[in-house]
């Protein structure tokens, strides 16, 4: 298990794209974008019903697996739980509520993100407490939007869907990553129907990529290499 320390907090990085704080076994995830496929379908994009169903069901299933793995009783979503108002169809909300029922022992908190502002809070029947950023979680600042200059305190954030490009001679791939910068740990997007944004890590930053059950730290030279590679083309 890869663990990082920010301030006084021991944080475990999970390959399922979550973070666990060992002191109270709180599980943190970011950017689920539930209902994104539905919002697309409602907006006229031809997406099959099976995709609508499966993207939501799959995200919730993976969340369940992590809850079980971390033996957690508290889950915090760092923003963008729901993708858009257009994605709040009865079937999607029904899946969400059913999932909540299965995990009724787990306390769930949502730190509202930009998509949540537009999509609205989840229905009260889902039993999810919604708070605005920044939210102080026992000494850990929780935000949706990371701050470019850092917050000056130990912080968890989401929003940017961080990714890095890894290369070796003749090989290259873009991978979602955890990005630790200026005391601020940015989580990869959890949802299956989400894009990625390549980060430009600076000096002193640390980058971790989840790969087949483990999380590996990547030397930060990565992003410089990526930039050099690009302009050389």
């Amino acid at each position: 298990m890869t663990t990082v320390r920010i301030g006084d907090h021991e944080l475990g990085l999970l390959a399922g794209r979550g973070v666990v704080r060992w002191s109270d076994r709180t599980l943190y995830v970011a950017d689920l974008h539930i209902g994104k496929a539905s919002a697309f379908a409602r907006g006229g994009v031809p997406i099959s019903g099976s995709v609508l169903e499966a993207t939501t069901a799959d995200a919730l299933k993976r969340l369940t697996a992590m809850i079980v793995q971390a033996e957690t009783e508290r889950l915090v979503v760092l923003g963008d739980l729901l993708h858009a108002a257009g994605g709040r169809d009865p079937r999607t909300l029904d899946l969400l509520e059913r999932w909540r029922w299965e995990h009724r022992g787990v306390d769930v908190v949502l730190v509202r993100g930009n998509h949540d502002q537009a999509a609205g809070d989840p229905p009260s029947s889902a039993g999810i407490r919604c708070v605005d950023e920044p939210f102080d979680d026992r000494g850990l600042t929780l935000r949706h939007h990371p701050l470019a200059a850092g917050t000056g305190t130990a912080t968890l954030a989401g929003h940017v869907h961080p990714a890095v490009r890894l290369r070796s001679p003749g090989d290259s791939a873009r991978v979602a990553c955890f990005w630790l910068s200026k005391g601020q740990l940015v989580l990869p997007a959890f949802g299956g129907f989400t894009g990625m944004g390549e980060v430009r890590a600076g000096a002193g930053d640390r980058v971790f990529v989840p790969a087949e059950g483990v999380v590996v730290e990547v030397p930060v030279v990565v992003s410089t290499v990526a930039r050099v590679g690009r302009s050389a083309r």
Binding site: S38, A41, V45, P46, I47, S48, G49, S50, V51, L52, E53, D89, R91
Partner: peptide
């Protein structure tokens, strides 16, 4: 019609 094979829920 609806993006793919029918799924009544949607």
């Amino acid at each position: 019609h609806r993006g793919g094979p029918a799924l009544t829920a949607y």
